[in-house]
Design a protein around this nucleic acid. Structure first.
Lengths: 148, 148
DNA sequence: ACTAAACGGTTACAAATGCAACTATTAACT
DNA sequence: AGTTAATAGTTGCATTTGTAACCGTTTAGT
């Protein structure tokens, strides 16, 4: 009498699958357009949003490990999409900022992302999208101790 | 007037984050209890659910690449949790099945998963969990061409 | 029947990732 | 002041993952 668990009904699995499906599709878009990796796209997204940040802050905001951030930042710097500026008070800290070229790319990326999300919502249906939003909000509210 | 995109409002990003938060927490549980990797746990979950499957079928059902499945299956075989049986008609095919030991582990894993999901739903709130369910269902319904 | 294409599964190699150790610097403690 | 702990960021190394090539077998086309 085997007590089975249908994987299709298991929330963590469904979340992973949905997440993979959606972000692989989006990743294909920005990768094709710019040759960016996910850590790179995320770092740009943060910098474009807040204007200026340290590597640590990028990591905190985007939930990426600091080595990922470090490598992404190095790559973006190599592309000439961001610059580092030493902090005057604390010489460990580097303030990062997009260059004009980086901001231009960011603008395009934002367009891409907006269109993507619009398509997604249209395809899911507005009511389902609202439900998803509500569900994700609840997950996001869960305390870090529980979330991690 | 930079047109910004708040990452916190971008669905793919939110999905990835929620998915990571939830499944890292669950992974910690089965990893601690059994030392399983995620591909291994998924393979067991499929086999426990359907009783018997080929590697290809495991891949299809769990959305894992065939190399991942191949490695997971090899590891589980090494543990003595599953056995391979050659197909009589088609000698390329191997039918996989959990051993008694594997089924025992599966039973425990199902318990673990059930408790996990109950806790999760309780913590989110039943209404939010229902909303999440509805949202995920809509994503799952999206055609593969769009999903991938 | 014979060749080419397709398929199940494994393996080799390259790229991405995570962890731990490291450097340099600042903060905290006594 | 002087030692210790903490922090920002980078790098080396082991592990994980994905891609492509591969072997053996079956199917399809001619």
């Amino acid at each position: 009498m085997p007590d089975i668990l249908p994987l299709e009904a298991f929330l963590p699995y469904r979340l992973v699958r949905a997440s993979n499906a959606v972000s692989q599709r989006f990743a294909a878009a920005y990768k094709m357009r710019f040759g960016l990796t996910r850590p790179e796209w995320r770092s740009i997204a943060i910098l474009g949003e807040v204007g200026e940040a340290t590597a640590t802050e990028i990591g905190r905001r985007s939930t990426m490990h600091k080595t990922k951030v470090s490598r992404a930042v190095a790559a973006l710097e190599g592309r000439g999409w961001l610059t580092r500026r030493a902090d005057s008070d604390d010489r460990r800290v580097e303030h990062l900022e997009l260059t004009a070229k980086g901001r231009q790319a960011y603008r395009e990326l934002v367009q891409l992302a907006r269109r993507f999300q619009e398509d997604l919502v249209r395809e899911m249906g507005a009511d389902a999208a609202a439900a998803l939003d509500q569900g994700l909000t609840a997950v996001e509210r869960m305390p870090p101790a529980q979330r991690r």
